[in-house]
Simulated assay, not measured.
Amino acid sequence: MTKDEDLPIAKMSFEQAMAELDRVVHALESGDVPLEESIRLYERGAALRERCSRKLAEAEEKVRLITRDDSGRPDGLAPLDP
């Protein structure tokens, strides 16, 4: 068990969640995991993916707020891809 596996997903940084998601995907792709463990890993992977998605959305919103001019209009930067 890794240190990130002990950390609640809701407390993980984007980088921690991505690293843990990568480990989950590799474990599932290996095919060496029993069925019950595969189901647990799949559920964890789904929660990790959601955490990453949420953290990316938060970052995108922060960038949007930072890139506004003095009147609050977008400062000419293209929006980030969803």
Rank of each mutant, 00 (worst) to 15 (best):
R23K: 14
R64L: 09
K62M: 11
K11A: 15
H26S: 13
A57C: 06
G72V: 04
S38V: 03
E60K: 08
T67E: 12
R49C: 10
T2Y: 06
E15D: 13
R49N: 15
A78P: 03
K55A: 15
R73H: 07
L80V: 10
L80T: 07
A27I: 09
D69A: 02
K55F: 04
L48T: 04
V33M: 06
L7M: 15
S38D: 06
M1G: 14
E5S: 08
C52R: 07
H26Y: 10
V33W: 01
V25E: 14
R73T: 01
D22T: 12
G76L: 00
E43A: 14
E20M: 12
K11D: 15
E5R: 15
C52D: 01
K11S: 14
M12H: 00
P82A: 14
R64P: 02
S53N: 11
V25W: 00
G31H: 05
E36F: 11
D81Q: 12
E43T: 04
T2H: 11
V25L: 14
L77A: 07
S38P: 06
V33Q: 09
E58F: 05
C52W: 00
D4W: 00
E29P: 02
L48N: 06
F14K: 07
D32L: 15
I66N: 09
E5Q: 12
L65M: 12
A17E: 07
K11M: 13
M12S: 07
S30L: 01
A47Y: 00
F14D: 06
A57Y: 02
T2P: 11
M12D: 03
E37I: 04
E61M: 07
R44N: 11
V24D: 05
R68I: 11
K62S: 12
R44V: 09
A17Y: 04
L77Y: 07
E37A: 14
A46K: 12
D69S: 02
L28Q: 03
P34C: 10
S13V: 02
S13C: 04
P34E: 15
P8C: 07
P79C: 07
D32F: 10
D4V: 08
P79N: 04
M12P: 01
L7S: 07
V24L: 05
L28G: 06
L77P: 00
R49Y: 12
I9H: 03
S38M: 14
T67D: 11
M12Q: 11
D32Q: 15
